[in-house]
Amino acid sequence: MHDTKQISLGKQITYQILLLFITFVVMFPILWVVGMSFNASNSARPKEIIPSSISIEAYQKVMVQPTANPVTFAQLAMNSLLLAAGVAFCSVLIGVGAAYVFSRFKFTGREILMMAVVTVLMLPSIATVAPLFVLLNSVKIELGDISFNLRNSLFGVGLAMISGTLPFAIWNLKGYLDTIPKDLEEAALIDGANFNQVFFMIILPLARPALAVTFFLGFLSGWTEFALSWQFLTQPKNFTLAMALWNMTGQYSGDTKWSSFAAMSILLSVPVAVVYLMLQRQIVGGLTVGGVK
């Protein structure tokens, strides 16, 4: 198969120049933010693209208290982690059953129910902020000493998020399950396995990569969720990393040093970027299945 002719040297050089230019364009913002995060300059907004002296002071500062709000980095990270993991876990756990029967069986109402899921998928989550805000705002939770407004809590933001991530999880999982051959299930049914046994002992183990990818995509949207948390949460103890990052950038950033903002950007990105790189192949495959999300 390797008898195809290789490109000529002239072409090779032209291609390399083009690709190096694209590499420069891709790396420019990344190098700028990495350089900024290590910049030891006293200036709040250093101009140089490559820092003249380097320190990890910005990281040390951000790791303690990134914004003017009385909330530590650990608290912010814990809130983001709880929100992201909770949303992802619930979506996958609740959605996988529906995804399985949509993928494998014909039954009365299948088309209508699938249509309902796809229709919701089309809506951006921001289009439902108004009713979710109003409805969750009207719920007061009283548990002994604990009393809080559901809207003004991470739990409420999580519920509002699941409203969008659950239909996505169902659809995404269905897309993956469609690609798993049916032979094993049929063999198991002939051997006398019942419906639940097939699902728990054959489908779930086979679908493990799909479950992992769907969990990760849910985690990613929770980890970087902004609009709902920004609208719902008013107490700094509930704030998330994404909210803090905007507090360090937007009109409320005040005199936040750009080195701190850059360090925060990197601390927020690195964990999810590493996992994304590992799952990249499956994620891209899933997004293009059938042309719908």
């Binding site: 609740i94 309902a116 009713p131 699941i162």
Partner: peptide, 17 residues
């Protein structure tokens, strides 16, 4: 198998819509 998904979606997706 459909019940958990559609029960939750009824409450937090379809009803809000």
């Amino acid at each position: 198998y459909l019940f958990p998904s559609f029960f939750v979606m009824s409450l937090i997706t379809f009803y809000p819509l």
